[in-house]
Design a binder for these strands. Structure first.
Lengths: 149, 149
DNA sequence: TATTGTTATACTCTATAACTATA
DNA sequence: TATAGTTATAGAGTATAACAATA
């Protein structure tokens, strides 16, 4: 296996983006479906995603991240708390503020189902050697990604 | 380069999904940002995506695809037509119906910016040999995907 | 009679403004 | 005085119901 030139990280990023773009509209459709099925607005879902990655978020922090007003954030969090998808706990260091955290129930809604039909179809005419190399490469990429998180 | 076992398409799909999942919340954030900047609702954006892939859509077809009511569809399309993002043309074969099509202006809003910072960072400690193989593999994948579209 | 819309109206989500409580 | 958040109210997006035009 060889390439004629030196491969740079930027070249791979560009390649990944081209592949990713191919799935873009499919992903939007899957996301919209996921939101509808679970009765979530896009902003509600975004809140779940943010508090998943960052514990003890404040309401104002979430509002800033999502470019929403504090009042809208109150409304959104109220709904999520009512549904048991996030918790609102008093901040002991600042009695004006609250910690927003994901519940187990909320965590269940994080994953948007993938639709890989199109991807699978593209393998139909692929050589076994190519499949092996692709699998190996993606495995390396996956390990690097998970390590860097 | 070798693998201990026979790689199946399903194994790669699974691997791709794991990688894709890693970018999921980042993508949701980028999408929300794109929608806000361009003053689009998720459903408006979904309509642009659908009419991009399928010409001469009817309103009812779009409503079914997005699980929206016909009345909501009328409202959404009215807005998009006013902004010049889609055209509504009479269907000569059925005078009740209209063809909805993407305009050039609408096509400009299809692409959601990618954020590959995280991806690029994961290459920092990668061997040149691994970069080469990854690039080659993704190139093959990309070609297969574009061909199958 | 069924289908493709549209119009009118109610409900949900977000913004604005005024406010309370705490820093 | 400034900041975190809430409450009340108005505007935008979607659902429901009733309707018009065409198949």
């Amino acid at each position: 296996m060889s390439t004629e030139f030196q491969v740079s990280p930027d070249m791979i990023v560009q390649m990944y983006n081209q592949i990713s773009k191919h799935f873009s509209s499919q992903r939007v459709r899957k996301l919209a479906e996921h939101l509808r099925k679970n009765d979530l607005s896009l902003n509600q879902f975004s809140v779940l995603n943010i508090v998943h990655h960052q514990k003890d978020c404040s309401s104002i922090h979430l509002a800033n991240h999502l470019s929403l007003k504090a009042a809208s954030m109150t409304y959104i969090i109220d709904l999520l708390v009512k549904r048991g998808l996030v918790d609102r706990i008093e901040n002991p260091d600042d009695r004006r503020s609250h910690f927003i955290n994901l519940t187990e129930e909320g965590a269940k809604l994080l994953t948007v189902p993938e639709d890989a039909e199109d991807l699978a179809r593209s393998f139909e005419n692929m050589e076994q050697e190519e499949l092996n190399m692709l699998y190996l490469s993606l495995g390396i990429l996956k390990n690097k990604l998970l390590k860097s998180t």
